[in-house]
Design a protein around this nucleic acid. Structure first.
Lengths: 304, 304
DNA sequence: CGATCTTACGGGATTCGTAAACATA
DNA sequence: TATGTTTACGAATCCCGTAAGATCG
């Protein structure tokens, strides 16, 4: 690289092979060029490194003393090259993401599974936190990037929308609303509701929509975890309104999942990056895959 | 040196100062040149090292990861430079010499004292061994060089004569021969002699001379150490024949020391070096001083 | 003489600095 | 607009390879 270490490589080759001619072959330069390189190194260090006695070339005492150090430098440089090329080549690295719990449970695992298959040596760490905390973590560079919804205008943050998460009604298959199409929020509000806690972004979205419509609603249960909410639905306690991406197909077996076509009930989910910060190659690649997964037919999410 | 580490130095400067402009001042290149150097380094490593956001330049994750390693390389190189320049500048180093005991006791201490005054950080190690072993050690590179007399022709050895060591008679001041001038070997052979052991070069020189002259001699005592011989002389056991350089003035107090003018009784002492081996700067300098001391009026030896 | 290192030199690549273009706050 | 980075480009430098020279065995 940069040909900056020709001299050291040349030195090591001559020291090992005891011959300018053979060393020149090894480092792929002409033999006179090698002579010059060694002379330059000797001049730079101020000491004679070899005794040239025509028939043989042997290290001087100074050369012997310097050899281990120079070898060490060479090794270190080689390691640096390897590591950085590994980073660039996605053969090593670490990606950290902060996402909404719904994404962490839904979209992200799909992307991670595919990413790990392609890049087994790259670690991925996921923090599932509330929307506000996502932005905090991105700003503090605690994570490479975040996935969430806009909190407010922020000059340090760049949000790139990449998927829209619809709210859906989750209900038993034999529910009176099971076959109603299209289904609206006010339809399900007529029944007991099972929602997430009041501090969650999903709950706030629903509350705002209900308020806007002036629709009264009866929240029968508040569940901290979506899986709890699903269980309650399955037990017939009521209807739940959750993001489409929240729950995988398997755990919805025996349930009817129907999108709510009420305007304002679509959560815009975007990529949250810190302004003026480039992503690592690994993170860059992961984002690419994330977009691809979000748009692929494998995922049952609508694209943004 | 060699401008081979411009890139790393540039990287460290930009990383530390957070500015191409300021870093350019520090490393004494134009700012555009620095831009190019960083770009080259990034290309060589395959990773982007800085996020340039106009108003500020900050390390990428890759840059942060690489920085400690690059700093280490830089430190190592600086150490290498320092050490080799110290070696060249005689501020550090080691000189090892193998000499005849007589030289080790006589000439060498004078030279070492002056050398250490000029170059306090340079260690000097002296091996006082018999002439034959000197050559062995020089050939095996156990020492930088030797001081001794010729053993036999040897293609691997270069001997540069630099002083002649006369043999002297050591006797009490009240000895019958005390005032005889000139004094010859056959004169002292008439008295009981105190000589060094038969394997020493001094003894061999004397034996050969006696044999050549056909002079019978009575060796009253054989001493392993010259100081022993001197003690015996002082006790009146006989006359000793020892090299002029062997004994310092102080220990000869009360004794008469008289050169023997018999031909062949002058030992040629030379610098013994291995062919095709350059001396270290420190050793080179020491040899220079050695010649100077040998020729100076401070030393009571005749020059070669 | 044969093998090997060093010196000499012309062509080509690299790098530098100046100046202009470009980009943010 | 002011500050700071990048791009463009001509000039100087550096480096390489070929060829000739020198030296030892």
């Amino acid at each position: 690289m940069l040909q900056g270490f020709r001299h050291i490589k040349a030195f090591m080759a001559v020291a090992r092979l005891g011959s300018f001619t053979r060393a020149a072959l090894e480092v792929n330069v002409s033999q006179p060029a090698l002579t010059v390189q060694i002379r330059q190194l000797e001049e730079a260090l101020g000491v004679r490194l070899f005794d040239r006695n025509k028939r043989q070339v042997v290290l001087t005492e100074a050369g012997r003393n310097l050899m281990p150090s120079l070898q060490r430098v060479l090794n270190e440089l080689e390691t640096i090259m390897d590591v950085s090329h590994d980073l660039a080549g996605l053969r090593r690295g670490r990606v950290s993401v902060a996402t909404l719990p719904s994404v962490a449970a839904g979209l992200l695992p799909l992307a991670i599974r595919r990413f790990m298959a392609d890049h087994p040596k790259i670690d991925i760490s996921v923090s599932d936190v509330v929307a506000e905390r996502i932005v905090q973590m991105v700003k503090a560079e605690e994570v490479d990037f975040g996935i969430g919804s806009r909190i407010g205008p922020d000059r340090d943050i760049i949000i790139t929308p990449f998927l829209s998460d619809r709210m859906c009604a989750y209900m038993p298959e034999d529910h009176p609303l099971a076959n109603q199409r299209p289904l609206l929020l006010k339809d399900v509000a007529a029944f007991p509701l099972i929602l997430t806690g009041p501090s969650t972004s999903v709950r706030q979205l629903i509350d705002r929509a209900l308020e806007k419509e002036g629709t009264p609603a009866h929240v029968a249960c508040e569940a901290s975890y979506m899986s709890t909410a699903i269980g309650m639905v399955r037990a017939g306690l009521g209807i739940s309104v959750l993001p489409e991406s929240a729950v995988d197909a398997a755990s919805c077996a025996g349930l009817r999942v129907e999108p709510l076509h009420t305007p304002g009930l679509t959560r815009k989910i975007g990529l949250i990056r810190k302004a003026n910060r480039t992503l690592s190659p690994a993170a860059e690649q992961f984002v690419l895959l994330l977009r691809e997964v979000a748009n692929s037919p494998l995922a049952h999410f609508s694209k943004g």
